[in-house]
Amino acid sequence: MLLTQFLLLAAILFSIGVYGVIVRKNGVLVLMSVELMLNAVNINLIAFSTYHGLGGQVFALFVIAVAAAEVGVGLAIVLLIYRNRRSVDIDQLDELKG
């Protein structure tokens, strides 16, 4: 097996995640796309760790932990948005408009 094939798979997943973050309107779906990107990174970490020892695996574990934290807080925020606006449509959140 080649290193490149895993890296390319990760790149594809990451790009799909980027697309999802940009295009999806529903807050929960945006979070799912973020998960895609995080997992792509994890594949990279593991693939490279075959060269560099176990550090990559340890940090992949940390990424999983951080991802769990991120989903928890992210969903709480989405829930709060839903409670305040009766919708999780990110398009409507344009208070930053200049």
Binding site: V21, I22, V23, I90, D91, D94, L96, K97, G98
Partner: peptide
């Protein structure tokens, strides 16, 4: 200011 739409995405 027209660039700043407020749309995060």
């Amino acid at each position: 200011r027209h660039l700043q739409t407020g749309r995060i995405q």
